[in-house]
Each structure stands twice: as structure tokens, then as C-alpha cells.
Design a protein around this nucleic acid. Structure first.
Length: 958
RNA sequence: GCCGAAGUGGCGGAAUGGCAGACGCGCCGGACUCAAAAUCCGGUGAGGGUAAUCCUCAUGUGGGUUCGAGUCCCACCUUCGGUACCA
């Protein structure tokens, strides 16, 4: 069997690695270790459809890095596991009656098989699944850490990393209890504590998806108000939910991004998601006929007493980023859910307001945002005083103001805010310009940038930036406002109404009637994990009541030592929970005492390289960082951040397709230039009629200018595009089939050769064929194909000293491949190895030593063929820990090199010169070239630029 | 609208400010073969030219900096991804 046959080689070496436990990470670093290296893939959700070609892309990249690192003497940790809770398994269970556990573990087996046949060097003894009871135990334990803590924003401390921070998550017992609450008794204290926990319950409007039978986090709802999974409609409902106080960590989540080696675009995405804004909170006195507080008295009072921490009933507190526009505030708006809404409504306005609130409450997020761009609202009948000038301004209710941001109330400055202007125009409210743009041509109304103040009393003429500072000081001095920071980030809605997730380790107290008293207590650590009860029916009931509420009584209830009945929390945790800390468990996956041994955490963390899809740029990566910081604050971890270096692999699209458009009835071609997309339909712009998409064979099309056109009618432009792989499009590539046909090495190599790791790129089966042929050439370079019986060395491969040019190409390749691996530039590394092979294959004698080094270079990319050839070249040990070849700079230099000669920057000749030729010689040699001569003829040489080893350029005139 | 990434042959892509198109695919020609597959060798940006180690043009568009720009600067266009009343 002389032909390159991955089908025999690959299983052979996979079995070898398993038997010899080649890739198990030793407890202790190897002798002469050059340090630890933790390389991690984003672990997959083991779906029923198996591995997708997108998975091996990142996994091959990390595999190359780790194999290379081992050969450099690094102590490598490279694990794999499963993010196995989640909707699809449960959905499948509902449809087929199979228990999600069964489906999940079956899918895991399939995924593991698929990954193993790709030859990844994972340490499988560290495999974990988020659904393992041992793992769930610690996920629940971490939840209890959150439950048992509060955030002290003023606490200044220095962490184990030596950095000084302000703000810390601390044990709930350390929470100072205000005297007035202490005085109210034990229940009040407990309630106060509960309200301050990092994990707390809240009655809140949530995204309820009837179809999925669950509430969703904001992040799981698309911008058009559909569920991220399944694209079902989502509506708003008030439900009791568990929330995690991620907003407390907002500032640190922004600040501590700085030291991470992440793509700047991902950092920016997180910053935008957290959305910090600075401005001021300002109190507006409500004009109140009953109390009769006059504006003057209030102002005088405030000057004395200052700005209260909590706003009182007499005022409406707003948040603004533009306190410099206070003089332009002509009305106020509160959110429909604002607690003052009904109180501010006058009897005459009562009907209108009630109707409006009802209407907006029924609106889905979809209606409240995108489609309904026109502003709606209703006047409350009440007024407030503008604190800067005492003017009475009306208070409106409108749903363009959100209760969940800032204070849920705004001052409207229609002249300088797009939304306010639109609203003012709709309801005919006054508009006062208070900022003059620096550019004369720009109209002041609608100008939202910075300029100079007008119509602002004594501040007229002040530039915006300066004005902001001045007015902030003035507000503070007069007790009317203070500087404030707001974040777009909301607390994390952490509960789901689903069966297949981690149960909360929480008990709710019941009174004698069986109603919740509001008192809760955590399950004791020693009782963890709270296992999922065995149930036959886990289907959502279409009501917010979770499936677990139908669990067996023995699971659901307990009676404590005092005879009090308790009921378990029946919500479950979201899928994100398990992925928030799995990288920690990999370091110490069998520890039964702790979630991770502190020494191991100190040794392995942070993850040195983390590769995964860009779709997790905010959610998973933000949640993980949040949990990590909480555990860090509580002293359980020494690393403040989980992932040091992050790389996003690009998406792999289907093969490029040519498509054209035809009329529905008579199948006439319509040029793509005439077609536009509307609501997922394609319309002929000329007549508004629908056209259908038709696939076109590559042979029937040609390129014309920048377009592709039909051969039969070049006036018809067609579209060439690669699309996302999807079942409906039928362009999904199954890795199993690729392996079956070309082998794992070819698949790995191809995925790396396609282009830069981070780039989106289309699949091409003939590209796979190309790298497969390359592996065949490598095989034939070393193996005697004429020998049909067994694998023997090609007669050309001999134990001889390499000549100078062989050494040069070898060392050039070692240098380039080594550098490219470090840069994660795998596509160019492979092309360098192709060049090497092209050059060496033809040679009469090929030194074994050169081949050995080359095989080592190839091994991280195509490990199976490399091991096979390594063995053939005379080794009886795996190459997995062989020393990575080193290049010798002195072997690279050539005595004579070719350099370009330019005249006025245009290439005119190439000359051969000694590598160490001085500038004079270079110029001399260049001038002697016939073509250069002809271009210099009759011209005046103004300047000669000679760059040694590079080029010569003559600058001429005339 | 805002934020981010990217525009280079028929295609995927390569190029510390210094020979544009490495490497691969595809295509064309040749060798081997009775023939085919496989393999090997050569060619392949466009246009001009009898030919050359020749000339012109060419990295989305228009300007600029520079002896020299795919690469740096300014403006614009297009595509893709994310996000959207956040005061």
C-alpha cells in the first residue's frame, strides 16, 4: 500500500495516542519545562446534527498551537467538554418523549467520536459536561456565592494581582444595615439583605415567549422582537425572576478590558454593550397645588440641605448627558411605568392617561421600537419648574422614555435632541434653541453636537464643554443636581422556565395555606447538587409556571426542623451558567472538595489563548468575566480575568453560488441590477413584480467588467455570492464525509489553508482536493510508491549530508513556519511548506535529516501523516514531544542576490549583486544593465537611491 | 442612524513603505498510457508588440504625502457583521 491512504494511517495513530496517553496533561511540568500554556476552545453545544465544518476550524487552530507548544517544551493544558444544557435537547424530548439526558449523552458520544477522528490532541481525561451532576454541584455552589454576596462600591482594596481597585463583592454578612431598618426588626433586615444580594429576585417585565414557554434574556431577543432561537414572537409580562447584579461590575468590566490581548473590535463591542455615559441627575420641583411649596422656598431649602441621595415625592428626578441644555428644556417626559404616573395625572387627564398606559403595556418591544417610529404620548395635566429659571413646563407620559434607563424620566430639549424634537413637533410643544453650532451654516434646531450657549441667561456665549462643568458645579452648589454615570447594561435575567437546566439551590418558605411568605433560604453546601427530578413530562405548559413545578412532591417540598414547609425554586438556570466557569473546572476536573484547587488555579489561569466564534463577543465573554470577578472578589480566585488572549475565528460559508432572477410566469431573465429585496421576496424594480431566484451553472456565465453576466445574454447581470451554510439552502458540508473522502489531515489542512483564521470565507471542495494532493506529494517525496507491498523509504531519501541549497530552503521554511504559527497565520505557513515540497520533490537525493525536520514542521497541521512518515524515517517514538526544529540564520544567507532596479519608481531591470555589495557597486552594476541604460539615456540623473539588499532607484529629469 | 471589519486575477488568497498577484484552485498545452484515472513538466492579470531581459495599464473611487504607496493621510462609494428611541 504505497499510496497515501489516510484511512489506514489515521485510525492507527489515533489508537496509538490513546493507548500511550500521549496527550494527557501531567500533574507536574515536564523536565526543563518552558512554562505553562492553557489553550482553550469555546466548548460546543452537542447538537443532534453533529459537528459542523465551523467547529474544526477553531479546534484545528488551537491544536496546531498546542502541538507546537509541546514540541517547545511547554506544559500544555488543552481540554474539551460540552455545553450540554439548553433548549434543543429539551425540545426534542417534548417531541419524542426521550429524556433530554439520554439525547444529550448520545449526542456527546457522537461529537466525541467526530472530534477524535480529527486527531485533536485533547486530554480527554479532563472532559466535562455542564450537565454532569458533579459539575452542576459547583455551578450551584457558585450561584450561592453570588447569592451570599453584595457589592460594596466604595471599598478600596488591593487584590492578589497587586492592583488597587475600588468596589468589591463582599459577603452579605458584611453589609451594613441602616439603623432605621435595624429598628424595624429581623424581617426588615433580611429583606434589606435580599435586596442587596448579587443574586436577587425581582418582579419585572420580562420577555415572555409563549411558543418556547419561557422568558428570555434581553440578549436572547432579536432587534425585531423575536426569539433568537426559533424566531418566535416575544411579549412583555411581569414575572418574579432571578437577577444577577452584573451592573455593579459595569465599570470594572470596562476598565479591566484594557489589559486583555483581545481584538480591539471585541473590546469595543463590550464597551458599547455596557454603554457608559456620564451626565447629571437633576431634580425638577413638581408644581403641586395641594402642598403649596413655592419654587423659591424649595430652591432656598435645597441650597441649604443639598442634593438628597434619594429623590423625594415632591420632585421629578431626571438624568441627562446634556445639563448644558437645561435652559432649553420645554417639557418633561416620564415612562408609562413610572411610579409617579398616576399621581401626576389630573382628573381631567385620567381617562386619556389610563388608556395610554394600557395600550403601551400591551405593546411588545417590537411595537415600542422599530416599526413605530412616530412618537406617541399623553399629557398628565401636571407641571414642573425648570430649576434654572423657574419656568413652568408640562409633564408628559411617553413610551419613548424607558423606565429601566436612568431615572425613567427626562427633561426634553427638543431643539437639541432628535427624539425630543420629533415628539415636540407631533404634539406642538415649544422649541427653544440653546446651543449655537460653531459652523454658521448648520441650523441650531436639531443640532445635537457641541457649540456655544445661547438663550441661557448668564451663560450665553459659553462653549458646551465649559458650560457642562459650570452648570454641574452650580447644580451641586444649589442642591439641585449632581454628576451621574449611567450604564446601558441591565442586570442579568438569570431564570428560565425550563426543565433541562441547573435547578436553583433555593428554598421558599410556605405559610400554612401553602403560599410563599417571601422568605428564602439557600440549600446547604453539603446538600449540593440539587439534582433534576426524574419526570416524564417536561413540556412547558404555555404558562410561566415552570415544568419543575410539576415535579414529584418529594423533590418539591420539605419540612424543616421547626415544622415549617418549604418549596423548591422551580425556575432553572440559563444555558450561559455552565459556560461561565468551565475553563476553571478543566484545570482540576476531579476535585470533590472544591470547584478548583487554589494552587491549580494559580498555576493554570488565565487561559493563554481562547478561540471561538465572534457570536459570543458580548454574552458569554461578558458573563464569564462577571462571574470570574465575583469569585475573585470573594477570594476564591487569584486571576482577575479569565481569558488573556482571545481570537475569533471567521465563519465558513457554503460554496459560492451564481444566481440570477427570472420572471414568475414566462421565465424571462431579469438583470440583478433591476432587482431589489423586499420582505424576503425579490422584486423587479421596473414593474414591482416578483421574480424568482435561479441557480446558474458556472459554465453559463462570464465576467464582464465588475459583474458576472449570462453567456446567452450579457445584458443580464447575475450574482456571485457565498451564503451561510443552512439546511434550507442545502449547502451544508458534513465533516464526516470530508474525512471519509480525503482524511482528517486534509480537512484540517484545508480549513487552515482557506485564508486568515479570523476571516469569513467560503468553502470549496476543490480546495480540499488541492491540499489532499499536497499531502500526496509529501508522501511521495519520502515513500517509495513502486513498492506495492509495504511502506518503504523512497530510494532518493538517503542518509547524506544536505547541500547548501537544501539547507537554505529547509532553514527558510523552519523560520517562516515558526513565525507564522506564532502569528496564527496558518495559511501562509502551509504555503511555505508547499514551496518546500515543490522544491525538494524533484531532487535526486534527499537527506533524511532534512526530511525529519520538515516532518516536524508539518506535524502540528497534519499529525497523522507526520507520525507515519516520522516512523518511516527511523524513529520509534511519537513526534509529539520531539524538539521543534531551530533555524540557523547563517544557513539562510546567499552570496548573490537579485534586486530590482527602478527608474522614476518604475521597474526596469533586475540585477544580480553580491549580498554585501556597497551602494557604489550597486549603482555601478545597475547602470551597466542594457535596459536601465536605455532609460537613462539623454536624461539627467537627479538622485540615486540605493538600499543595500533591497533595490536601486534612479530619479531622472528631462 | 451609530459602531466594527473588509474591498487585490475567473476563484480562495500573498505581500517589515521597496520586484503586486507567493501558495492553492480553475483553465490551457505537453509527457506517461492502447486509453483513461492518478502522477509529472510548462504556461496562465489586461492590452500592445515580429520579438526582447520590451512598452502601457492595473490592488473599490478621487485627491495627497514620498525617490517609491495595495500598504501612510484626507474625502467618498460598496459589501458584510453587530446594534438601535439608552436621554
Amino acid at each position: 500500500m504505497p499510496r497515501y491512504n489516510p484511512k489506514t494511517i489515521e485510525p492507527k495513530w489515533q489508537a496509538f495516542w490513546e493507548k500511550n496517553r500521549t496527550f494527557e496533561t501531567s500533574e507536574h511540568p515536564p523536565e526543563n519545562s518552558t512554562g505553562k500554556m492553557y489553550v482553550l476552545d469555546m466548548f460546543p453545544y452537542p447538537s443532534g446534527s453533529g459537528l459542523h465544518v465551523g467547529h474544526p476550524e477553531g479546534y484545528t487552530a488551537t491544536d496546531i498551537i498546542t502541538r507546537h507548544a509541546r514540541m517547545q517544551g511547554k506544559h500544555v493544558l488543552h481540554p474539551m467538554g460540552w455545553d450540554a444544557f439548553g433548549l434543543p435537547a429539551e425540545q426534542h424530548a417534548i417531541e419524542t418523549g426521550t429524556h433530554p439526558r439520554e439525547t444529550t449523552y448520545k449526542n456527546i458520544d457522537n461529537f466525541r467520536r467526530q472530534l477524535q477522528q480529527l486527531g485533536f490532541s485533547y486530554d480527554w481525561t479532563r472532559e466535562i459536561s455542564t450537565t454532569d451532576e458533579d459539575y452542576v454541584r459547583w455551578t450551584q455552589w457558585i450561584f450561592l456565592q453570588l447569592f451570599g454576596s453584595w457589592y460594596d462600591p466604595d471599598f478600596t482594596w488591593t487584590g492578589p494581582d497587586g492592583k488597587k481597585r475600588t468596589g468589591k463583592g463582599r459577603p452579605i454578612d458584611d453589609l451594613p444595615i441602616p439603623e432605621e431598618i435595624q429598628a424595624e426588626g429581623e424581617d426588615a433586615v433580611r429583606k434589606y439583605q435580599d435586596e442587596n444580594r448579587l443574586a436577587y429576585q425581582l418582579e419585572a417585565p420580562v420577555n415572555w415567549c409563549p411558543k418556547l414557554g419561557t422568558v428570555l434574556a434581553n440578549e436572547e431577543v432579536t432587534s425585531d422582537g423575536k426569539s433568537d432561537r426559533g424566531n418566535h414572537p416575544v411579549e412583555r409580562r411581569n414575572l418574579r425572576q432571578w437577577m444577577l447584579r452584573i451592573t455593579s461590575y459595569a465599570q470594572r468590566l470596562i476598565t479591566e478590558l484594557d489589559d486583555l490581548d483581545w481584538p480591539e473590535s471585541v473590546k469595543q463591542l463590550q464597551r458599547n454593550w455596557i454603554g457608559k455615559s456620564t451626565g447629571a441627575e437633576v431634580d425638577f420641583l413638581i408644581k403641586d397645588q395641594d402642598s403649596g411649596i413655592s419654587f423659591q422656598n424649595w430652591r432656598a431649602n435645597r441650597s441649604k440641605q443639598g442634593f438628597p441621595k434619594q429623590s423625594d415625592e415632591a420632585v421629578l428626578r431626571v438624568y441627562t448627558t446634556r445639563p448644558d441644555t437645561l435652559y432649553g428644556a420645554t417639557y418633561m417626559v416620564i415612562a408609562p411605568e413610572h411610579p409617579f404616573a398616576s399621581r401626576l395625572t389630573t382628573p381631567e387627564q385620567k381617562d386619556a392617561v389610563e388608556q395610554y398606559i394600557k395600550k403601551t403595556a400591551a405593546k411588545s418591544d417590537l411595537d415600542r421600537t422599530d416599526l413605530a417610529k412616530e412618537k406617541t404620548g399623553v399629557f398628565t395635566g401636571s407641571y414642573a419648574y425648570n430649576p434654572v429659571n423657574g419656568k413652568e413646563i408640562p409633564i408628559w407620559i411617553a413610551d419613548y422614555v424607558l423606565l429601566s434607563y436612568g431615572t425613567g424620566a427626562i427633561m426634553s430639549v427638543p431643539a437639541h435632541d432628535e427624539r425630543d424634537l420629533e415628539f415636540a413637533q407631533t404634539f406642538d410643544l415649544p422649541v427653544i434653541e440653546v446651543v449655537k453650532p460653531t459652523d454658521e451654516k448648520t441650523p441650531a434646531i436639531g443640532f445635537t453636537g457641541e457649540g456655544t450657549a445661547i438663550n441661557s441667561g448668564q451663560y450665553d456665549g459659553t462653549p458646551t464643554a465649559k458650560f457642562k462643568k459650570k452648570i454641574a458645579a452650580w447644580l451641586e452648589e444649589n442642591g439641585l443636581g449632581k454628576q451621574a454615570v449611567n450604564f446601558r447594561l441591565r442586570d442579568w435575567l438569570f431564570s428560565r422556565q425550563r426543565y433541562w437546566g441547573e435547578p436553583f439551590p433555593i428554598w421558599h418558605e410556605l405559610d400554612e395555606q401553602g403560599n410563599l411568605t417571601g422568605k428564602i433560604r439557600p440549600v446547604d453546601d453539603s446538600q449540593l447538587p440539587v439534582k433534576l427530578p426524574d419526570m416524564d413530562d417536561f413540556a412547558p405548559k404555555g404558562t410561566p409556571e415552570p415544568p419543575l413545578s410539576a415535579a414529584p412532591e418529594s423533590w418539591l417540598y420539605m419540612t424543616d426542623e421547626k415544622g415549617v414547609r418549604w418549596r423548591r425554586e422551580t425556575n432553572s438556570m440559563p444555558q450561559w451558567a455552565g459556560s461561565c466557569w468551565y475553563f476553571l473546572r478543566f484545570c482540576d476536573n476531579k476535585n470533590s472538595e472544591r470547584f478548583i484547587d487554589p494552587e491549580k488555579e494559580k498555576y493554570w489561569m488565565p487561559v493563554d489563548l481562547y478561540i471561538g466564534g465572534a457570536e459570543h463577543a458580548v454574552l458569554h465573554l461578558l458573563y464569564s468575566r462577571f462571574w470570574h470577578k465575583v469569585l475573585f472578589d470573594l477570594g476564591h480566585l487569584q486571576s482577575p480575568e479569565p481569558f488573556h488572549k482571545l481570537v475569533n475565528q471567521g465563519m465558513i460559508l457554503g460554496e459560492a453560488e451564481l444566481t440570477g432572477y427570472q420572471t414568475v410566469d414566462d421565465k424571462k431573465w431579469v438583470s440583478a441590477k433591476e432587482v431589489t429585496e423586499q420582505d424576503e421576496k425579490f422584486i423587479d424594480k421596473k414593474n414591482g413584480k416578483e421574480v424568482v431566484v435561479v441557480n446558474i451553472d458556472a459554465e453559463d456565465a462570464q465576467k464582464k467588467g465588475s459583474d458576472f453576466v449570462l453567456n446567452s445574454d450579457p445584458s443580464i447581470v447575475i450574482v456571485s455570492r457565498a451564503h451561510k451554510m443552512s439546511k434550507s439552502r442545502g449547502n451544508v458540508i458534513n465533516p464526516d464525509e470530508v474525512v471519509e473522502f480525503y482524511g482528517a489531515d486534509a480537512l484540517r489542512l484545508y480549513e487552515m489553508f482557506m485564508g486568515p483564521l479570523e476571516q469569513t470565507k467560503p468553502w470549496s471542495m476543490s480546495g480540499v482536493e488541492g491540499v489532499y494532493r499536497f499531502l500526496g506529494r509529501v508522501w511521495r517525496m519520502i515513500v517509495d510508491e513502486k513498492n506495492d507491498e509495504q511502506v518503504t523509504l523512497s530510494p532518493a531519501v538517503q542518509d547524506v549530508e544536505p547541500n547548501e541549497s537544501q539547507l537554505r530552503i529547509l532553514h527558510k521554511t523552519i523560520k517562516a513556519v515558526s513565525k507564522d504559527i506564532e502569528k496564527l497565520s496558518f495559511n501562509t505557513a502551509i504555503s511555505k511548506m508547499m514551496e518546500f515540497t515543490n522544491e525538494m520533490s524533484g531532487q535526486k537525493t534527499i537527506p533524511i535529516s532534512v526530511m525529519k525536520d520538515f516532518i516536524l514542521l508539518l506535524s502540528p497541521f497534519a499529525p497523522h501523516i507526520a507520525e507515519e512518515l516520522w516512523e518511516l524515517l527511523g524513529s520509534n517514538e511519537s513526534l509529539a514531544y520531539a524538539a521543534w526544529p531551530k533555524y540557523d540564520e547563517s544557513k539562510l544567507t546567499e552570496s548573490e542576490i537579485e534586486i530590482p532596479v527602478q527608474v522614476n519608481g518604475k521597474l526596469r531591470a533586475k540585477i544580480k549583486i553580491a549580498v554585501d555589495a556597497d551602494q557604489k557597486t550597486m549603482e555601478q552594476t545597475a547602470r551597466e544593465d542594457a535596459n536601465v541604460k536605455s532609460h537613462l539615456e539623454g536624461k539627467q540623473v537627479v538622485k540615486v537611491i540605493c538600499i543595500p539588499k533591497r533595490m536601486v532607484n534612479f530619479v531622472v529629469k528631462g
